[in-house]
Amino acid sequence: MSEPVLEIRNLNVGYGLGDQAVRAVRDVNLTLHRGEVLGLAGESGSGKSTLAYGVTRLLPPPGVITGGQVIYHPGNAEPYDVLALSDLQLRRFRWNETAIVFQGAMNSLNPVHKISTQLTDVLKAHDPKMSEHSRNVRAREMLKLVGIAADRMDAYPHQLSGGMRQRVMIGMALILQPQVVIMDEPTTALDVVMQRQILGQLIELRERLGFSVIFITHDLSLLVEFSNRIAIMYGGRIVEEAPAASIYRDALHPYSAGLLGSFPALRGPRRELTGIPGSPPDLKGMPSGCSFHPRCPKAFDPCAGNIPVLGRPGTPDGSSRSVACWLHPTEQPVGL
């Protein structure tokens, strides 16, 4: 495996303080390697977006990071902890090193400014010495890269279709050539045809430019196809993390298996599917032990009492994956 570019260590993120506090992300350990696409899947409320915002320190109050480290490896310099950066350092870190594409690109562009202005603004803010001409050239280049004709530079967001707006957002994220791009449900609002075009383009760009992607979505079948590794979150914790193919062929955690069994297949025999019974847990009253146990078809004695630790399972391909489930007790916990 290639070297890591972003390491999340024991990250805890909560909302609110005191008695009202809700722990949305609990003890998450995750490593993003250079040039890979890491998929992050889970239901709404599982903490996947909170994790992304926590890592980039974009979390608005009352969100607070209550502990942990996020180590960034710049490649040519010493690694540093993103959570310890000062405001000025953070300003330099953002967009230059990590960029984020938000959920609902439709609303992320400013409707009263031309897209050319919005693209060059980024350059102006991060590289004040750049001339106006070269800014324009760069913006044009970027649009071409994401497949939009350069004559749409002077269009307003409402003049573009949803797919084009999403491409502009991706172009904006890549304009400073960051090492890490975080995409928070980038294609949920789009049609399947457009979704495939944009993801295909993204993968192509990644091969050309060599950045790493954290891809957040609830659509597991999409992740299996497009990402290298998948981490599955439930109730604020990572319950399983493995190469995409291993998850698909042989999911160890009952929740991952349940998620995979929730998608009707387009090909192959028609089978009766059940989904997962029950409803997602309330973050305020999290069940004891494994937070999935009230919905788990395979729950047994230890599940209700003890929280399973994320670690390497004893299966043959155990060295490349980790799981937090009492069905697969571990001797090598991750990140402790």
């Binding site: 609830h218 349940g258 929730s262 989904g275």
Partner: peptide
Amino acid sequence: LDVSIRLG
């Protein structure tokens, strides 16, 4: 709806 409950 969430994927896990759609089928339900």
